[in-house]
Each structure stands twice: as C-alpha cells, then as structure tokens.
Design a protein around this nucleic acid. Structure first.
Length: 553
RNA sequence: CGGGGUGUAGCGCAGUUGGUUUAGCGCGCAGCGUUUGGGACGCUGAGGUCGGAGGUUCAAAUCCUCUCACCCCGACCA
C-alpha cells in the first residue's frame, strides 16, 4: 500500500473528546472515526489489525475443535422473553419493531439463538460434545460508552458455545478454551492474566476473565504476590484475620455524642476500627436491607447482590433509613424486626464488638454474635483490598487495574432447561445439555493492544497483529535513485507477500519519521541519498532506538 | 438515570456585556516558489445554514424558550 493512497490521514491535533491513550492514537493515526456514541467506523489500518486478530482467533478456535458458524444479529424478542434474560439485560437490549409490529432485538450475545440451534440438531449423546463459534457484531445499549474502542455499543466479538453431556465433558471443553485463549493472547503479543470472576445472577460454577493490566482498565483485579491467586475484586476473597476480644461480656450502653462514622466512634471510644461493627443500608428491589460488617471492612456490592439473589441494589438514603425506624450513625442490628439483615462473616472473627444502639449518640459495647443478634444470612460480602491476606497462601494481596478482553463461563444447564435443549444419554434418559460460553472482544483487544504497546511517539504494534510489517521511508523523493530503490524494494516485498507500506509522499524527513512512529509498523526502512551512496539502506525496529545500516543486495 | 461540561470549516480554538463581522486565528487542504535526517517558510486560494427549531429585536454566533448530539464522573460488560 502507498501512503499517498491510503484512506485515512494522520492528524496533528486530536479531538478533545479522546482521553484514553488508545483512543487518541487511533484517531491521530486515522484508524477509526466515530459515527455515534460508542459506534465506530474502522478505516483500513484498523481493519487490517482487526482481521489479523480475527484470524489468530479463528486459527486457535479451529485447533481447539471449534466449528465456525454465523448467527443473525436480528433476533425475535420472544426468544429473550422465553429465557427470561430480556429482564437481565434490561435497557441494554436494543429492541426494535418491524412493520408487522413484531419486536426484534439486536443480539447482545447469542446463547439463546445457539441453544435453539443446538436443540434442533442434537438429540443424542452421540451428537455431543459440540464447540460452535462465530465472530460477529454484537449490540449493547451501554449506559455509557467510553474510551474509544474500549467500550462501544456495537462491537465485534468472538463467541464460542460448548455443549456437553456431562460435567467432565464441560470441564474438558472449558480447559480447551482456556488453553486456546492463552494462545490467542500470547500470539497477539499481549500478556493476559486469567482471574477468577463473579458468575453473576445466572449462577454456574466457574467463570474466569482474561485481563490486561493497564492504567486505564475499568476493572480492579486482586493478585497475590505469594502464589498464583488472581481474581476480579468483585469475586476476590481474603482471610479475615481474627481480632480477638476475649470472653463475651455483658452489653453496655455508652454515650457517643455526635459520633456517626466508624472512624469517629472508634476514635472516641479508643478502640480499633476492626473491633467495631458497621451498619450499612441498601435498597434491594425497593426493600431496605440492613448490612452488618466489621468496621474496618468495606461492602462488596457484587457479593451482596449475589447474597440477595441477584436483586437490584443501591445505597439507601438517610431518609429511607430513618423511615424504617433506624438511627443513621448509630443503627443497631440488635432487635431489628421486619428488616432483612445480611452480615459479613467477619462478625465471627472476634467478640465484644462496638455497635450502634439505635439511639441517637449512643453505642453498645460488648456486642456478640450470635448471642445478641441473628442475621438472616451470614456470608462473605466484604471487599478485598491490597494488603489483605490471600486465602490460598496467606501472602499479601495486591490491586491493579485491568482491561477485560476475554471471559469464559461454565453456564451449566440454566438455558438448556428453560429452552428445552435436551439429549438422550446412554441409558435412554433425557437430560439437559451442559453449556459453556466464551467471549473475546475483538475491537477491545485492538484498543488494549495499543494501551499496552505505545510510547510518546505513537503505537508499537506487536508483529502478529501489525497492519503492515514494513514501512518504507524514502527521503528526498526528487532524487530519482531514491525513488528507484524504494520502488524496487516495494515490489520485492510485495512479490514475497510481505505486507509493506510505502511512504511515497513528497514530505520532509521529519514528517515521514513522525508518521512512521505514530503508525507503529514494526520495521522501518529508510532509503536516502546518504545511505544509497554506501549502497545501503537503514533499518530500524519500532521498539529500538537506533537504526542499522544494511547493505543492499 | 443522577452529577458536571461542550457544540463556530476536516482537526484544535477565539469571538458569546447584541451593531465595521463580509464570522476570525492556527493546523490541515489546493496552486506556485524556496527548503528539507525528526512535524520548514513565503505568496495566493478554496472551505461555514455558528448543532437544530421557535421567539425577542431595526439588528442574533451573541438574549429567551424548547430540542438534539457528544464528552467526562458514578450504577453495567467483551
């Protein structure tokens, strides 16, 4: 390709709206163009990279035994109502009405369609297992698209679905996919970290996310510096160290005038925060819920949501708390009636805690579980933080940001049961098919690749996904020898099917070098009168500082 | 949806207390010339329904009302 003809120009100034590095660089390099919020057009440079990524994905999916199919983006809403997931997706589902007044959804994912598909093509255990995949455009009406290609409303995704006869088969399929994903990210030059993930409202036994560590990542991930434990903070567990407290003593009321926060109360009574119990209030599907957690810990809303069976939750307002007859700032789990109480299991990590007395300016000492109060549920709803102890090895946990580029999920039989995708096993019994689903965001992967591979000059493409392998930079185009040499090299590489970009513009060296650095093609070859005198050209890898003189022929 | 912000040429911006404004500047774009090893310079030129609709006024980019789009911070996800 010749730069003079390449569709898409490099910009010197970038639109003010871009603040993510990958977004800025893609706009500057003329790779993408925004058409609407979270909707992008991909210009040749971006499209070439996307195709490279897709081909790596296809190759690995095929190697793992997957079969490629293509399902429609347009899906009857009925199908979503049948599975009940129209509610789970809610506003995120793009719904439209056709001329016959039928409702259709633009597919945000394809579990329903693929399950229907399998239902009519699988009857016997002999038809299993199956690994079906596609690379296809998904539509999700995200509440807030952001970060360029990091989070869009229309995006290309690899989605593979596994269908097995038993758990052992699912495990096998799952492991194949995990392996394939590892290969994909490695081949793309991206060190992805596999972390345990929350499996969400649908349930299921296991879920993992593949994360790229990046400042701009939207997810917090917790890793252990002593072992391989890694989890999304939504899921991350940690050891709740014992805080002691001795034999349970009788309850004692103490005056704590004006002390509302844990910090204030602990300071006032001169007890460590971890020896207090904190009350937090949430509204879950419109109902007030009383949360009790050790004072030094924070509530993990995802864990809480799961403990509440997937309810919609938000923090309750002071007014809502007062209305329920509780005293914000001094609320007590003791004697609460008619309100659901969920406690973090940290309440069992010690004795004689300080807690609210449900009287203004008053707290209680020596509060003990289960002597003084009995929550409806006691489970882990605490948020792991850097410095906490690892559940696997006791080592120190660390926190970092990650971009989620892949996600694997043991779905189980939820969908096959509701949609009636069953098979007959060896003993002639009808059973639901056991499913798994696996996704990789292709555009996001492209953006993440840039997030991880750039410098202040521009992109530094990993070779396997680079839009071109070689960038020819002839300097002083008015010199016919330069042009001849450049054209010759260009033709040579083309005849060998090497992807080569020729900067045939009559631009100054500075412009060409800067554009070359911006576009980030791995190998730059400079052709100039200076080096031609020595019958040589200059080569430079994008990630290296100095160029090398290389003899021609 | 809650909070904050922005819409003026392909991009970055100024102009916004109504009136020399024929709406400017820089980059980019076209032509000519001089240059050129890390985003050169001069001259000439093209490019705008000032997001949209309605209103106030002798006069609106500028004031009022409504509306649309986009960005950023929070709840969701590949």
């Amino acid at each position: 390709m010749r730069v003079s003809q390449l569709f898409g120009k490099t910009q010197r100034e970038i639109p003010a709206e871009a603040d993510t590095v990958s977004h800025q660089l893609m706009l500057k390099a003329g790779m993408i163009r925004q058409v609407a919020a979270g909707v992008y057009a991909y210009l040749p440079l971006a499209w070439r990279v996307l195709k490279n990524i897709e081909n790596i994905i296809r190759d690995e999916m095929d190697k793992a035994g997957g079969q490629e199919i293509l399902m429609p983006a347009l899906q009857p809403l009925e199908l979503w109502q049948k599975s009940g997931r129209d509610r789970a997706f809610g506003e995120g589902l793009f719904v439209l009405t056709d001329r016959r007044d039928r409702k259709l959804a633009l597919g945000p994912t394809h579990e329903e369609v693929v399950t229907e598909l399998v239902k009519y093509n699988v009857q016997s255990y002999r038809d299993l297992p199956q690994l079906l995949y596609q690379i296809q455009t998904k539509f999700r009406d995200e509440p807030r698209p952001r970060g360029g290609l990091i989070r869009t409303r229309e995006f290309s995704m690899l989605d593979l679905y596994s269908f097995d006869a038993d758990e052992a088969g699912l495990d096998l399929s799952y492991n194949k996919m995990v392996e394939a994903y590892r290969n994909i990210f490695e081949r793309c030059g991206l060190p992805a970290v596999m972390v345990e993930a929350d499996s969400g409202a649908i349930g299921g036994k296991a879920s993992h996310e593949f994360m790229l560590i990046a400042e701009s990542g939207e997810n917090e991930i917790i890793t252990c510096n002593g072992c391989t434990y890694a989890a999304n903070v939504e899921k991350a567990q940690f050891i709740k160290t014992k805080v002691g407290g001795g034999e349970p003593l009788p309850l004692e009321e103490v005056s704590t005038p004006g002390m509302a926060s844990i910090e204030q109360v602990a300071g006032f009574l001169n007890v460590p925060e971890k020896r207090t119990l904190k009350a937090v209030f949430y509204m879950a599907d419109g109902q007030l819920v009383f949360i009790v957690i050790r004072g030094d810990l924070a509530v993990n809303e995802v864990k809480l949501k799961n403990a509440l069976g997937g309810a919609d939750i938000r923090l309750a307002t002071h007014a809502e708390v007062s209305q329920a007859g509780l005293v914000p700032g001094a609320a007590s789990p003791i004697g609460v009636e008619g309100i659901k109480v969920i406690a973090d299991d940290s309440i069992t990590s010690g004795t004689n805690f300080v807690a609210g007395a449900n009287k203004p300016g008053t707290h209680l000492k020596n509060v003990n579980y289960p002597r003084d109060f009995t929550p409806d549920t006691v489970t882990d709803i605490a948020r792991a933080r850097a410095g906490d102890k690892c559940v696997k090895c006791g080592g120190a946990l660390q926190s970092s940001n990650g971009i989620e580029v892949g996600h694997t999920f043991k779905l189980g039989t939820f969908l096959s049961e509701t949609l009636g995708a069953v098979f007959v096993d060896q003993s002639g019994v009808s059973r639901p098919i056991i499913m798994g689903c696996y996704g990789i965001g292709v555009g996001r992967l492209l953006a993440a690749a840039i997030e991880q591979n750039h410098d202040n000059k521009g992109i530094i493409w990993p070779k396997p996904i680079a839009p071109f392998q070689i960038h020819l930079c002839p300097l002083y185009m008015e010199n016919p020898q330069v042009v001849t040499a450049a054209e010759k090299l260009y033709e040579e590489y083309r005849s060998k099917n090497v992807e080569v970009l020729l900067d045939d513009r009559p631009e100054s060296p500075g412009v060409k070098f800067n554009d070359a650095d911006l576009l980030g093609i791995p190998l730059r070859i400079t052709i100039s009168p200076r080096s031609l005198e020595k019958n040589s050209i200059e080569t430079k890898w994008r990630w290296e500082k100095e160029s090398k003189l290389q003899p021609l022929e």
